[in-house]
Design a protein around this nucleic acid. Structure first.
Lengths: 411, 411
DNA sequence: CCCTTTTTTTTCGAGCCTCGAAAAAAATAA
DNA sequence: TTATTTTTTTCGAGGCTCGAAAAAAAAGGG
């Protein structure tokens, strides 16, 4: 059904727009909002006084870098921290963390713990998450009733409705419906998101100049994750979180991948694959479930020092990534790439062969657009992306019900 | 800038919605429109009487399959044919055609001619298009002033703004800015679109049940073209028409492609590649610019008859397509595939190895969703897609100015 | 043949929403 | 203290959609 636009949708959309602008801009004045949204002074005035009355926004004291000018001074509007509480949980290999944020996006409380995800049972995983949520809420002095939304990021594949973790390299368990489980347990709405997608959300928020309409984030670790933003929207598949870059085929029938198939990009460029190759093991050897970062650092040192098996392994990895990006760019046209995660520490050993390989593909055409930004620590990005995602969902669902903004797939 | 919604946008959007519903449904009554759009009777009544007064819609006599019921009979609304005239031009290898459509989408006049595109100069190509437009307009009894929009489909890559043909296999010429040239010459707005994208638009219109949110169209011919619809929107790249499936890399450093690079899918699955392989030529041989359909039919016969080089060539082609689809599905999740063009005639020789290859990839998971529909003749689909695209642009720009509907990238 | 029933379509007043213009507010400059 | 400048609010006008009621146009029934 092609839905018509009702009259009251108008207010909802414009309210959502105002809230979104305040979240993006920081502390804009009403006048800033007028130029930002194109709405009239009257409308902005009406909407913002409503939002202040409802406790969503609040007038804030002008900052220090205020230019002293003639005329009535602008009153900046900020998000009211007390308006809502959101929760994020990040579940990665051997690491679990939970963070409570206020509505303005400031951290209220945070907890982090080591957890042997590879050996933990299904119930232990769920139990650990549940306990951590209870603990961090207690630290924050909040109850589950205060939480308006939770976003959970996991390594691996999630479903397109953001309800479950379908498959993950961090445990042999699969199809864990975290959203259902946690919603039943705590009562607040939960979404489950892919970690790389959250990185993309965070990068877009951090540097909108650079990461706006089209860009790629690659998470180089034991596996290869991807987050993809196309036309300003986070890309997800029809059934899953999508964007399984690491499992595009680099060489049909080639090296054995962790997923059991052969020739995936990951089977050449994942940490386990680089290690396997550098150590002279057959590329049909079963993958290590985890590779110590220290080992990878030493491997990178070896590669930098001399032209031996380590350097060859990184070159081969770069080749796989490069051809993969080339094929991706053949589909979507070249775009900026952000490289995130431990793999950045050895990226200098891969970049030449990556560029070489891209040059061999149709994606090598708009060479100038292809650039690589490095960010070693993925954790802060994942956290930021989760928080943003949760807060934007609250913005829309709660304070502008009925209107669904962009970047909200599976929210 | 995040644009707020102005008050008058409301009417524009709802007008656009009504027009779109009429175009999609055929001849809906006002009551149908109410349930289709979710708007109230009053609003539909107001909008449709406006549109009738403006000569965009018209009440039509009820069709034969009208159920005789008690009560005031429904009055069907149809598009007023005289409301606008649009023009489509399709430029393929050695073929040029132009068609005039009325606003209701009926063909008013059509012309088609053989043209040696491979040997024609740039000026000759442009001249041929110009002459054909003049001729078909004369046949239709229209002048350029009557034409509200023209959509041109070309084989090859177009720019993302749909203004120019960037590269094409049908002539050595490249970067021909058809939109600028023709707009200057005739005065009506022109867009230049990729042929496979128009096929996707047409399939979506023809069978919305099957081709709705996510699907792939593959045009198998001398080259391999792709049209991709994701989340209900035609996918295009950031700089070009995108979706260069044929130039994803199947085997790094492999067979020589028409594009000069090595290992592209096309270099295994294009007609020239199949012929080259079947004939026992090296896969580093330069490609034929054109392969006679008859030759391909004979090759397919050979392949069906015995397990020789012809069968091996088709198997190899299917493998390339299969692994390519597998990689694509790793990114976007599996989706229905429509196979269009001459390649369908030998598709039975490729399907087994396509399925076999997909099964080796991450895309092979949701096996059930992957289905292949065949449509040998691409020409009617391209034409239908072009017409639809042009008409929808008229719908929106002219009768609901300011509101840009979906499926309108680069319109 | 006329009146009732049923269904579709139009009309009409109410309630919102945005807009532009004018007024009010709050500061600096002289 | 008064004029000037800039921001913000107020207020009336115009539009849009909605629901309810009225009008229109057919079939059914006695």
């Amino acid at each position: 059904m092609i839905l018509g636009v009702r009259h009251d949708d108008l207010r909802k959309r414009n309210r959502a727009m105002v809230i979104a602008a305040v979240r993006r801009e920081g502390q804009p004045s009403r006048t800033d909002l007028v130029s930002r949204t194109g709405l009239s002074h009257s409308t902005i005035s009406a909407i913002s006084s409503d939002l202040i009355a409802e406790g969503v926004l609040r007038p804030v004291k002008s900052g220090e870098n205020e230019v002293v000018r003639r005329g009535r001074p602008q009153v900046s509007l900020g998000l009211e921290p007390k308006a809502a509480t959101v929760l994020t949980v990040v579940l990665l290999l051997n690491t679990l963390s939970a963070t409570v944020f206020d509505y303005a996006g400031e951290i209220v409380a945070q907890k982090r713990e080591r957890l042997s995800t590879l050996t933990a049972s299904r119930d232990e995983l769920v139990g650990a998450v549940t306990h951590m949520i209870e603990a961090v809420l207690q630290d924050a002095g909040r109850t589950p009733n205060d939480v308006m939304r939770m976003t959970m990021a996991v390594q691996g594949i999630t479903d397109s409705d953001a309800r479950a973790m379908l498959w993950t390299p961090i445990t042999p368990e699969s199809d864990i419906p975290f959203a259902d489980i946690l919603e039943r347990r705590f009562g607040f709405p939960v979404t489950v998101q892919n970690d790389c997608n959250m990185i993309a959300v965070a990068l877009r928020a951090r540097d909108p100049e650079r990461y706006r309409d089209n860009f790629v984030t690659l998470l180089l670790s034991n596996g290869i994750g991807m987050g993809l933003v196309l036309r300003g929207e986070l890309f997800t598949g029809a059934y899953s979180s999508g964007g399984e870059f690491g499992h595009m085929i680099h060489r049909p029938g080639g090296a054995l991948c962790r997923c059991g198939r052969h020739g995936c990009i990951e089977a050449y460029a994942g940490n386990y694959a680089i290690l396997r190759e550098a150590a002279g093991r057959s590329d049909q050897t079963v993958a290590d479930a985890d590779v110590d970062p220290q080992t990878m650092l030493e491997l990178a040192q070896d590669a930098r020092a001399a032209d031996g098996p380590a350097r060859a392994a990184f070159t081969r990895a770069g080749e796989a990534i490069g051809y993969g990006l080339g094929s991706l760019f053949a589909l979507i046209d070249p775009a900026p790439v952000a490289i995130v995660g431990p793999g950045t520490l050895a990226f200098d050993m891969m970049e030449p062969s990556i560029r070489e390989a891209i040059g061999q593909t149709a994606g090598g055409q708009h060479d100038a657009v292809i650039s690589f930004d490095l960010e070693a620590d993925e954790m802060p990005l994942i956290l930021e992306g989760c928080a943003r995602r949760a807060l934007e969902a609250v913005d829309n669902e709660l304070f502008a019900p009925g209107y669904i903004a962009t970047m909200q797939a599976g929210a």
